[in-house]
Amino acid sequence: MAKTLNEIRSAFLDYFEKNDHKIVESSNLVPNNDPTLMFANSGMVQFKNVFTGLEKRDYQRATTSQKCVRAGGKHNDLENVGYTPRHHTFFEMLGNFSFGDYFKEKAIELAWNLITKEFGLDKNRLYVTVYHNDDEAFNYWKKNCWVK
């Protein structure tokens, strides 16, 4: 039987926990470290100061399911909601984060294994994009993914 939304959330977080990530709770929708932002709109919002190096945490790998609202300010999906199968004002963003720890190769490997092994997606239906001059990422995908 297909997994429920709640089970899928747990599967994602558990997978990254198994891979040495700390499960961090979603931060508030009303950001407390960013006066320019109306609502949290992605998983990295609570880690902004960690990425810029202003703030230190006692972990270098994290995973979250972040509450997001896109209905005001820069990202505003309000008027589309209802008329498409995919627009929301409120949604949850799953994510994994490395703060100066692993980089492209590991990130691609972790992502690939989750969706093809844990989630069992058919790899023939998968496509990826890379930035046009990002040969590193291109080669990691090429070397490690479909061919294996």
């Binding site: 939304l5 998983g43 990295m44 995919r86 994510g95 490395s98 692993y102």
Partner: peptide, 16 residues
């Protein structure tokens, strides 16, 4: 260098 990823839960749930 760091990594930040984002996957919409509702969307992946639909797919699965």
């Amino acid at each position: 260098p760091s990594v930040d990823t984002g996957m919409g839960l509702e969307r992946i749930a639909a797919l699965l």
